[in-house]
Nucleic acid binder design. Sequence first.
DNA 1: TTGTGTGAATCCCTTCACAGCG
DNA 2: CGCTGTGAAGGGATTCACACAA
Lengths: 211, 211
Amino acid sequence: MTRRIPASTIRRLSHYLRSLEDLERDGGETVSSEELAERGQTTAAQVRKDLSHFGSFGKRGLGYKVEVLRDYIREILGVDRIWNVALIGAGRIGAALFEYPDFGSRGYKCVAIIDSDQAKIGTRWGDLQVRSPDDLQSLITDLGVELIVLAVPAQAAQEVAERAVKAGVKGILNFAPIRLKVPSEVHVEDVNLVMQLEAVSFAITQRTVGA
Amino acid sequence: MTRRIPASTIRRLSHYLRSLEDLERDGGETVSSEELAERGQTTAAQVRKDLSHFGSFGKRGLGYKVEVLRDYIREILGVDRIWNVALIGAGRIGAALFEYPDFGSRGYKCVAIIDSDQAKIGTRWGDLQVRSPDDLQSLITDLGVELIVLAVPAQAAQEVAERAVKAGVKGILNFAPIRLKVPSEVHVEDVNLVMQLEAVSFAITQRTVGA
DNA sequence: TTGTGTGAATCCCTTCACAGCG
DNA sequence: CGCTGTGAAGGGATTCACACAA
């Protein structure tokens, strides 16, 4: 719909979606921005503002219909469809993703696993076989992969990313602790657990030192 | 030093720290805010502003001494010491953390692993033995654990967190997809990979639809 | 001259407050 | 009435611009 949506709005939309799914499981029919706010750790005004970027989905005096809003948010976030994902780097990080129950239920489908370790190539992971990096481009093209999970060591990441982008990948969930250089139309989302740990230790340290 | 530091500043400090360590490896003696900005994907003014919250570490006309600034940032982030960390939930997510090379080098030391799965209890992970949740409190107290990595299923997370906090834990890196309720002095940092994937699919979707 | 440190200006996100629809 | 949708106000973070120290 509109341009220039704050990243914080997107994060909150993800929360709302989860809340709506919970509500539906519990048989809720409608929600108010108030109720959604409580569950999402924000304010009612914020909820309404977030949604207003994309349209008006509620009824005044009544609230939002749970199912309807859920579907709209799914559409906004682009999770109303299947995404073919390739996992590059068959280490523990990659494996961990599959433990996340929401991973599959949100439409992310792992269709290829690639690793450069000769010992891993050919082994089965569920119903997939680990493939060689040589097949990277052809796999991406043939399987229609738009999204990759990049879980390789830092020094290999840039090169792999470039090849993936060349083959048509549009988004990268990047676990390598480097800033990938990619064309601006490719979206990179960095996961950096050490950085998050540092945020924790900072908070504790300041709290201990400060007043 | 000062109060009210933007969370974004902390994230950037983590980046600066990494850059400084790289520079040191390459034998750099001094850096300018300009150079630090390039590596950290921000602006020189932002770098200076970030640092100004904590003191003045540079020399006008010259820049910052790499080693000195690095030590200051380490101190600010609280990574100039060893943090005893307990891993709760010995699944793949937990295992993945140990693959992160920076995890140990930043002073985070895993001193205990806890899992409720009887089959896992007693098994060795490196030089640690997986322990039962019954030992949670005593382990935290005895080993001086201040920080936990919470990688258990959502429904167990709240209860485990409460017990950990009661035993003295001050910070939590939370992988469970729920909003933990803890006393305000305990810092919780949420890791939510599905949410990050949603941010990617949103970006791609909007890009495809929009102008 | 160079590049930091910092008030002032700007920009963007959040919050307020209320008009208006159901 | 109740609750959404939204301009306007407010606040916090980033950027600007320059005084000043090395």
